[in-house]
């Protein structure tokens, strides 16, 4: 089972996807670890990536090094949450 902190981080990432990409809340609520993101969501293009990362930084109080960002991190919801959780909980 996920810790309370991990659940909070996952919720924050969901909220950022909703707010930055303008996705329907029900649709975002249904995302699971395997939901593909980059390449699968037309809303998530290279222009959106910057806002998405910055908003995640703000909400989780973390700093994302741009040189660490790669295709894999944005591949699926699970990968993105995993990256954010590792950063936030160290």
């Amino acid at each position: 089972m996920k810790s309370a902190e991990a659940v909070e981080i996952e919720d924050a990432v969901r909220a950022v996807l909703r707010d930055v990409l303008g996705l329907n809340p029900e649709r975002v609520a249904a995302f699971d670890d395997n939901t593909p993101l980059f390449g699968a969501l037309p809303e998530l293009d290279s222009m959106a990536v910057a806002g998405l990362l910055t908003e995640i930084e703000d909400r989780l109080g973390i700093i994302i090094d741009d040189d660490e960002v790669d295709g894999e991190m944005l591949e699926s919801f699970g990968h993105l949450v995993g990256f954010a959780t590792a950063k936030a909980l160290g």
Partner: peptide
């Protein structure tokens, strides 16, 4: 920083 970030994402594509 955000402009550079956007540029990086576009370049990566």
């Amino acid at each position: 920083r955000e402009l550079i970030r956007t540029k990086m994402a576009a370049d990566r594509e």
